[in-house]
């Protein structure tokens, strides 16, 4: 309630008013907690910033280390994938299959499902049905990517056996193209002569 609205009490004028200085309040006690508060605030803030920046720096270091590790592993993976692709390439598989004595079988047999009917005559191969398929002498493929040797010690021990020529020669005798030597003399197949 405002003093303006306070009822005027008669007789109060008769009392002489004594003006006194308002007692000085002591700030000594109030300042200390304030300074402490500010100091703690500042200290806490600085510590926070320090911790934060240290953490970020550490994490940045960790990130760099992990990125470098990731790159390292990625390179190793790429090298291993290339090695696997080398080994599973059609050329390598065919050479190795030939070296193991495997020969193409041009006499297919099909089983029709569900009737079980067999189409074709299953026939064992003798090995020289397709004399044109003798792999040529293997040429070591010069690869610009040097054979990677990842740090792993479990290096695949399956060195490609690149020795099909000797086997090929043994298996296949002398024939190379599968036509009788005299075929030329026995046939007059279409020559176009002007």
């Amino acid at each position: 309630m405002s003093a303006l609205h306070a009822p005027i009490t008669p007789g109060s004028d008769s009392q002489p008013t004594v003006l006194r200085a308002v007692p000085r309040q002591s700030h000594q006690l109030a300042q200390l907690p304030f300074i402490l508060f500010i100091a703690v605030l500042l200290g806490g803030g600085l510590t926070g910033v320090l911790v934060l920046s240290t953490t970020i720096q550490t994490q940045s270091g960790e990130l760099a280390a992990l990125q470098s590790q990731e790159a390292e592993l990625r390179y190793q993976e790429a090298a291993l994938v290339a090695q696997a692709q080398d080994l599973r390439s059609s050329q390598n598989l065919a050479d190795q299959a030939w070296a193991l004595g495997m020969r193409p079988n041009p006499n297919p047999a099909f089983i029709k499902m569900p009737s079980g009917e067999i189409l074709g005559v299953p026939t064992e191969v003798s090995g020289n049905e397709l004399p044109g398929m003798v792999p040529p002498a293997p040429v070591s493929v010069p690869v610009t990517t040097p054979a990677p040797e990842p740090t792993s010690t479990t290096e695949p021990s399956t060195e490609p056996t690149t020795e099909p020529t000797t086997t090929a020669g043994d298996q296949d005798g002398t024939e190379q193209t599968g036509e009788p030597a005299n075929s030329e003399t026995t046939q007059p197949a279409g020559e176009a002569t002007p």
Partner: peptide, 12 residues
């Protein structure tokens, strides 16, 4: 002759 030099390959 095509029948000599090319046919065996085509057939195989």
């Amino acid at each position: 002759y095509g029948g000599t030099v090319a046919f065996p390959t085509a057939r195989q």
